[in-house]
């Protein structure tokens, strides 16, 4: 009787321990960040600092594919897609894809949260660009590794008005 309850207790402790480690180490989106709105009027450097807190980013060239037009005739609708040549397995997957437009008044365009069931790290979106500037894609793996690529888009007609 005491032996069984001791074992059960240890098993439960083990589960709790794993949960605590996972909670502590998976960067993901902390509750504090989720409560804050994603899009603020801010400089792109402030946005990056707010989202990633100075964590190192690897150069994503060769790993992350950012497709943007060289010249956007109409800044109101600019097709952007991001793909990453990284695993999408339950043990290691691409957790987040960020699209950031450096020169927009609201630089953070979207944060996409993916599950391994997506099968491939790929997202596309039509975005607004206020003026000529870099568009970047930041990819975050489930272990917290960050990859970044950027590409300049020339904008003929602004898409943000005001």
């Amino acid at each position: 009787m005491t032996e069984i309850s001791r074992r059960a207790l240890l098993e439960r402790l083990g589960v709790l321990g794993v949960a605590a480690i996972a909670g502590g180490f998976i960067p993901g989106t902390p509750a504090g960040a989720a409560a804050q709105p994603l899009g603020l009027h801010e400089k792109v450097d402030d946005a990056i600092a707010r989202l990633f807190g100075g964590r190192p980013m690897k150069d994503g060239r060769g790993t992350v594919t950012l497709q943007v037009p060289l010249i956007a005739e109409n800044g109101a609708v600019v097709p952007v897609s991001v793909g990453a040549d990284l695993p999408m397995a339950p043990t290691s997957w691409v957790r987040h894809v960020y699209i950031v437009a450096d020169r927009n008044r609201i630089p953070v365009v979207t944060r996409v949260t993916l599950a391994p069931e997506a099968g491939r790290a790929f997202v596309g979106a039509n975005i607004r660009l206020g003026e000529t500037g870099d568009v970047r894609a930041i990819v975050e793996q489930s272990d917290g590794t960050l990859w970044q690529v950027r590409r300049e888009v020339r904008v003929t007609v602004s898409g943000c008005g005001g």
């Binding site: 365009v109 996409v112 979106a125 975005i127 607004r128």
Partner: peptide, 9 residues
């Protein structure tokens, strides 16, 4: 997938 989006979309 979950997209969190701003007015830059």
């Amino acid at each position: 997938a979950t997209f969190e989006t701003t007015q830059s979309v």
